[in-house]
Amino acid sequence: MTLGRETIVSIRGLQKSFDDLEVLRGVDLDVAKGEVVVILGPSGSGKSTLLRCVNRLEEATGGQIFVEGVEITDHKTDINKVRERVGMVFQSFNLFPHLTALGNVMLAQRKVHGRSRREAERIARERLERVGLSEKADVFPIQLSGGQQQRVAIARALAMDPHVMLFDEVTSALDPELVREVLEVMKSLAKGGMTMMVVTHEMGFARDVADRVIFMDEGIIVEQGSPEEVFDHPRSERTKDFLGHIR
């Protein structure tokens, strides 16, 4: 998979438990630069937790994660520096309600990258245009539809110039007719060469956009391969069962 390409995220034997509950039980995964990895699996399979460990929103209880060669599971690592390069988009958008769309996209640029107001605004407007919302710059999140909010959230992550982006069920909270506009934005990002780790239930998106599909269940990777391999010729019974239920 990673043949000839630089590895950007490397996960080794990752374990995570909440109290007595083991959510991740030894996950190994390498993501190459420019690769789009879609992670599938039933709820509770640990796919979201895996994603959240990559920018340390969850602390791993075992194993190692390297992002661009830096071990983020090491407590001496400045996690804020790592997070600057790892963008994340959430299921619940999590836009800052007290700021306009533009303000949402500008805030971290100014506080983290130390960009000037003018520079941050220029970049923010450019990113909003990329997600097709340049005319909504001065609108507060409450006045935007779910799809628009999620696109602003993507623009906000993009404004930090991330090297990897994590998408955690970003369309799950959206009305069906709003899903497409978000997926379109993600598709164009993928075409532009962005490295993406995507947890989703959108099979169509996985088939069209993914370089690799990963099927997780009960805290381990059960099966992985190209979309054709996983969707059309699943080897494991659990994968077959899951895909059967989805269709």
Binding site: L57, R83, M88, F90, N94, L95, A108, A153, A157, M160
Partner: peptide, 10 residues
């Protein structure tokens, strides 16, 4: 909200 802010590197 905190997760979003922290994930942006703040």
């Amino acid at each position: 909200q905190l997760e979003a802010a922290r994930s942006l590197g703040m």
